[in-house]
């Protein structure tokens, strides 16, 4: 309870004591939040703040008969655009001669929760906080407090009409903000107009796109509770000139990547952490393979996965 109060107090100002929602109520909240981006068109500008860095992005989302389509455009730094449609995602980097890359993920703020978000009540307690205003819209504060040491907490501010997150703060186990998204301005189209949007087209298929992984020299024998493998591909790694296996494990909110590649002659085995401890990394050698486990997750989750990697029976 005290940790929940800390989360709400530190992130949202107003603190209200709240018991965890009953699992059924919590599941309804999560499911509504997960489905909001598939129901509503929206466009706006949001800010990503991580450590002392701030990035501004323009986002638009529309709903068509084929599903949701979204577009992200970076407003500062390198010119970058991400288009997501029909479960595929492409990033376009650069100006006059842009470079296109097929992405292996297609989710982004404010589309944070998986389609089966209700199951997350097993691993997170949900508590309702007070009302806040974000981008001129009243929103309901909602805390997702992890039940174990394998995940970070989240504080969301939810538009009560659409259930779209207007703000999301990732917090550590002491309630300290690690990263946050917040809309500075947003328009949400509530109604059927969004359904008439024409589907967007993606650029032509790209070379060097990730491809499905068929078999691996390693296997992961144990994952943190609630985590499962959501993707496993072979992909090129930027500026490395090599192809690596990229596995992603997730509990729906947290993502942990594992990279597998042939052992290099001068490889090193390291353990690392980012400045605020949000991102943790571990590399190790398994047989003749170099493994890198990295994720925005507590060290306990990274270490559990790293310790569970062994040579595959293949």
């Amino acid at each position: 309870m005290m940790r929940a109060l800390m989360l709400l107090g530190l992130c949202c100002g107003t603190v209200q004591a709240a018991e965890p929602l009953p699992a059924t109520d919590a599941a309804v909240w999560l499911q509504n939040i997960a489905e909001a981006p598939n129901r509503y068109a929206y466009q706006g500008i949001f800010v990503l703040q991580k450590g002392d860095r701030m990035q501004t992005l323009q986002v638009s989302n529309r709903v068509s008969a084929q599903g949701k389509e979204s577009r992200l455009v970076g407003m500062d730094g390198e010119q970058r655009e991400v288009r997501c449609t029909r479960g595929e995602s492409v990033s376009i980097v650069g100006g006059p001669s842009p470079k296109q890359e097929r992405r292996i993920g297609s989710r982004h703020f404010p589309d944070l929760l998986p389609a089966d978000a209700a199951r997350m009540t097993t691993w997170y307690d949900l508590r309702l906080g007070g009302m806040e205003r974000v981008a001129g819209i009243e929103c309901q504060t909602l805390t997702l407090e992890p039940k174990d040491q394998y995940r970070w907490g989240h504080v969301l501010c939810i538009d009560k009409e659409s259930y779209l997150p207007l703000k999301a703060v990732l917090v550590d186990q002491r309630g300290r903000p690690l990263m946050q998204y917040s809309f500075a301005e947003v328009q949400i189209a509530k109604g059927a107009a969004a359904a008439r949007a024409r589907p967007a087209s993606l650029p032509a298929p790209l070379q060097d796109a990730p491809r499905a992984l068929n078999g691996s020299a390693v296997e992961v024998r144990q994952l943190p509770p609630g985590f499962s493998r959501v993707i496993a591909v072979k992909r090129p790694l930027a500026n490395q000139g090599i192809e690596v296996e990229h596995w992603v494990f997730s509990d729906g909110l947290m993502h942990i990547s594992m990279f597998v590649e042939p052992l290099a002659r001068n490889n090193v085995t390291v353990r690392g952490a980012s400045q605020r401890g949000m991102t943790n990394l571990r590399t190790l050698r398994v047989g003749q393979n170099q493994i890198t486990v990295v994720g925005d997750a507590p060290p306990a989750a990274i270490d559990l996965i790293a310790r569970s990697i062994g040579a595959s029976a293949l």
Partner: peptide, 27 residues
């Protein structure tokens, strides 16, 4: 490159790796 690949999957929005490894134990 690993950080960039992971963060591209997890967030879509970063143009450069946002994470800076501060402490590394080297084997």
């Amino acid at each position: 490159p690993y950080l960039a690949a992971h963060q591209d999957y997890a967030y879509a929005v970063v143009s450069v790796p946002e994470m800076v490894i501060e402490k590394v134990s080297l084997a």
